[in-house]
Computed example of a mutant assay.
Amino acid sequence: MAKEFTFNPAQQSSNTASKIVAALERLSEAFRVLMWQEAKQHGISSTIQVQLLTFLLHYPKEQKTITYLAEHFNLTKATISDAVKTLEQKGYLKREVIPNDTRSHSLVLTKQGKSLAAKVEQFAQPMQKTIANIPSAQQAYLLEQLMEIIYDLNCNDVINVQHMCFNCNYYEQKSRGHYCQFVKKNLKAADLRVECPEFLLAEA
Results as ranks from 00 to 15, higher is better:
residue 199 F to P: 00
residue 102 T to V: 06
residue 23 A to Y: 03
residue 159 I to N: 06
residue 46 S to I: 05
residue 127 M to V: 15
residue 24 L to I: 15
residue 105 H to Y: 15
residue 137 A to L: 08
residue 90 K to A: 13
residue 6 T to K: 05
residue 110 T to N: 13
residue 166 F to C: 09
residue 166 F to P: 06
residue 12 Q to Y: 07
residue 54 T to W: 00
residue 23 A to H: 03
residue 169 N to E: 10
residue 14 S to R: 10
residue 174 K to Q: 09
residue 93 L to A: 07
residue 173 Q to I: 04
residue 16 T to E: 12
residue 34 L to S: 02
residue 133 N to W: 02
residue 112 Q to L: 13
residue 164 M to L: 10
residue 7 F to E: 15
residue 43 G to R: 12
residue 182 F to M: 13
residue 204 A to F: 09
residue 30 A to L: 15
residue 147 M to P: 04
residue 158 V to M: 09
residue 111 K to V: 11
residue 52 L to I: 06
residue 65 T to E: 11
residue 57 L to F: 02
residue 32 R to N: 06
residue 77 K to A: 05
residue 123 F to P: 04
residue 57 L to G: 01
residue 90 K to G: 12
residue 143 L to S: 07
residue 197 P to S: 04
residue 188 K to S: 07
residue 170 Y to P: 00
residue 120 V to K: 00
residue 91 G to H: 02
residue 73 F to Q: 08
residue 102 T to F: 07
residue 63 Q to H: 15
residue 142 L to D: 09
residue 131 I to W: 10
residue 121 E to K: 01
residue 81 S to M: 09
residue 94 K to N: 11
residue 185 K to F: 14
residue 45 S to G: 07
residue 71 E to D: 13
residue 45 S to W: 04
residue 82 D to Q: 09
residue 66 I to M: 03
residue 88 E to M: 03
residue 96 E to V: 13
residue 117 A to Q: 08
residue 183 V to C: 06
residue 196 C to K: 05
residue 118 A to R: 11
residue 120 V to R: 00
residue 69 L to E: 02
residue 76 T to Y: 11
residue 110 T to R: 14
residue 96 E to I: 10
residue 83 A to C: 03
residue 89 Q to E: 15
residue 54 T to L: 00
residue 121 E to M: 01
residue 70 A to E: 07
residue 203 E to G: 03
residue 158 V to F: 15
residue 71 E to N: 11
residue 150 I to P: 01
residue 8 N to Y: 14
residue 61 K to F: 05
residue 96 E to H: 11
residue 164 M to R: 06
residue 130 T to R: 01
residue 77 K to D: 07
residue 154 N to W: 15
residue 41 Q to D: 07
residue 197 P to I: 00
residue 160 N to T: 14
